[in-house]
């Protein structure tokens, strides 16, 4: 298991991570979301052993990661920018990975390249942003790590490539028991693949939940108010978001239960129907409510 316990990290005197804890189990796909500068990339760099944690622990199957080749060999890392060594081409990178990672599987790399189609002889510096990302995903998966960490893996990819990335990740998690941690702003994509997510805000864990329990946090309702909703609806403190098309109102409401349904009826609601809340809606609503 990949465990992060009470992680603190600062840049000089500014602390950017204030005691973050999370776990990624083998075979689990865990999403990491948060606004810009929330500390996601710093957290990932600590987890991959690029940065040293000031306090707390990062363990891969019980082994500390920082400056520990034994643990590092079990981690794959796809960064948000993957320059590697600019003058190398893909073939040379494969040779390098074979040298450093005994588990590197060239056949798997070739299989992935049938999907992603990277020109093997071009130098990395001359590849496009999307091609660099594809190459990084191929290399990191082909080295068969126990845990794969991805920072914005779909940035720069076309829709087909994005789909392929998600398919490959699901396959790796299911068939090879690979634990995956993905940080992304593409919440629709994350929703498709993740088993659980951690929301980070300003260096703290704001919320951790499985995708199934997401509906417990907030509820989205389609409600009909014949003749329009009155100010009493808008003044409710538990109502985080409201929009309408004619008399059909879409509400996102906190801690929804039967009592609240009765209260809405009392306000003139003639029809109520809970609908699926997307991860993106959840994130945006929470962000907006925090700012208010």
């Amino acid at each position: 298991m990949l465990e992060i316990k009470e992680l603190h990290k600062s840049y000089d005197k500014t602390e950017v991570l204030h005691g973050i804890s999370l776990e990624v189990k083998p075979g689990e796909i865990h999403g990491l979301i948060g606004e810009n500068s929330a500390g996601k990339t710093t957290l990932i760099k600590c987890v991959t052993g690029v940065y040293k944690a000031d306090q707390g622990e990062i363990l891969v199957d019980g082994e500390a990661v920082y400056d520990n080749p034994k643990a590092k060999v079990q981690i794959g890392y796809v960064a948000d920018y993957n320059e590697y060594i600019r003058f190398y081409n893909a073939t040379k990178m494969v040779k390098m990975y074979q040298r450093f990672y005994p588990t590197f599987d060239v056949e798997k790399f070739n299989y992935l390249n049938e999907l992603f189609e990277i020109p093997l002889e071009k130098t990395i510096g001359s590849l496009s942003k999307g091609q660099k990302m594809r190459l990084a995903i191929m290399l990191e998966i082909a080295k068969k790590p126990k845990y794969l960490i991805l920072d914005e893996p779909t940035s720069g990819l076309d829709p087909v490539a994005k789909e392929n990335v998600y398919k490959v990740l699901i396959k790796e998690a299911e068939e090879n028991d690979m634990g995956i941690l993905i940080s992304s702003h593409n919440l629709m994509g994350l929703e498709k693949v993740c088993d659980s997510v951690t929301m980070i805000h300003a260096g703290n864990v704001e919320r951790q939940m499985s995708m199934d329990s997401m509906k417990d946090v907030l509820t989205k309702l389609n409600v009909v108010f014949e003749g329009g909703a009155g100010p009493a609806l808008y003044n409710r403190k538990d109502l985080l978001r409201v929009s309408n098309v004619g008399s059909i109102y879409t509400l996102i409401i906190k801690d929804y239960n039967e009592d609240k349904a009765d209260e809405l009826k009392a306000l003139g609601a003639s029809f109520m129907e809970p609908v699926a809340l997307s991860l993106e809606e959840l994130f945006v609503t929470l962000e907006e409510s925090r700012k208010e």
């Binding site: 760099k45 052993g49 080749p69 981690i75 320059e83 590697y84 060594i85 600019r86 450093f100």
Partner: peptide
């Protein structure tokens, strides 16, 4: 100097070797 570029250096840091 070439290997000391930030992105390259960070990649090198992820390699399973002692710092």
């Amino acid at each position: 100097v070439d290997r000391n570029e930030k992105s390259t250096r960070e990649f090198m840091e992820t390699l399973p070797v002692k710092r």
